[in-house]
């Protein structure tokens, strides 16, 4: 299997608080991997390090694309996205006052071919590519049953649809690696199970690797083939869901929480 991401000894602290400490992680092509851990364990911080929102203090992040290796630390977020890493946010960050369609098509900006001149004069190049953008966006929206809501404002969508739209927007950037930060947070069981199906579907139909942060154990355990566990910034365990369930350190970290829920 081909390696997609390799993170080594990654560390970040806020003042005296060590949010992520010397974390190692590897992802392989086509995998769906879970990242779990109690509140404040450093999961979101880890995503923010991968996507360039925070600068790592130590360690390295390498993205493998074919035979090429890109080191991601010290890159800006937009640059990291251009290299093929897309994400969603724990507290949904849609462009609330833009339409559903605009949310998705702005995410195709990195592959845009026309420049400033066609934009100012609406030339034939502009017309053609704009039509393609709409077409591609609608195709993506269809996957999430959102195409009939394309002209609605993002903020007017029901909560579950907003979560879906954020995933659609991330996919629109044409990623090789998709990072999902608690996509099921705030969803009811019916919405969660629909989301679970959608994530599996995406994995099968798009050629990508997914790293998923999730609190909902049933979701992670049912769809991830491998998991990592963070606790107080330390990676305390790694393995298949069965192994993780039995790991004494994990049980201790989650003391009081029901792993079998």
């Amino acid at each position: 299997m081909n390696k997609v991401l390799s993170v080594q000894k990654l560390s970040k602290s806020f003042g005296g608080l060590a949010a992520v400490t010397s974390v190692n992680l590897e992802l392989f092509q086509g995998e769906l991997v879970g990242l779990i851990g109690p509140n404040g364990a450093g999961k979101t911080t880890f995503f923010n390090l991968l996507t360039g929102i925070y600068m790592p203090e130590k360690g390295s992040i390498e993205l493998h694309r074919g035979s090429e290796v890109f080191s991601l630390q010290k890159r800006k977020p937009h640059d990291i996205c251009r290299l093929g890493v897309a994400r969603t946010f724990q507290n949904i960050r849609l462009f609330r006052d833009l339409s559903v369609l605009d949310n998705v098509r702005t995410a195709m900006n990195k592959n845009l071919k026309y420049g400033l001149f066609p934009a100012l004069f609406h030339t034939g190049t502009y017309q053609k590519e704009e039509e393609e953008l709409v077409e591609k966006s609608m195709e993506l929206l269809k996957i999430f049953d959102l195409e009939s809501k394309a002209s609605e404002l993002a903020k007017n969508l029901p909560y579950g649809d907003q979560r879906h739209l954020e995933i659609a927007r991330a996919l629109a950037t044409d990623p090789v690696l998709l990072l999902l930060d608690e996509p099921a947070a705030g969803m009811n069981p019916a919405e969660t199970s629909q989301l679970t199906r959608t994530i599996s579907w995406i994995r099968e139909n798009f050629d990508l690797t997914i790293l998923l942060i999730e609190h909902d154990m049933s979701l992670v355990m049912s769809i991830c083939e491998r998991m990592y566990v963070l606790d107080y910034g330390l990676m305390i365990a790694e393995g298949t869901p069965e192994m993780i369930k039995k790991d004494p350190r994990v049980i201790k970290a989650y003391l009081g929480e029901d792993l079998h829920a």
Binding site: L98, T106, K110, P118
Partner: peptide
């Protein structure tokens, strides 16, 4: 010209910065 620019992919990229700069960067907008 400004109206044309606003109604182009480049203009929409500008608007995403007003909406949410972190989200805009996360989808590849410089």
């Amino acid at each position: 010209l400004i109206s044309n620019f606003i109604h182009s992919a480049h203009g929409r990229a500008c608007i995403t910065l007003r909406e949410d700069e972190i989200a805009a960067e996360s989808i590849g907008i410089d």
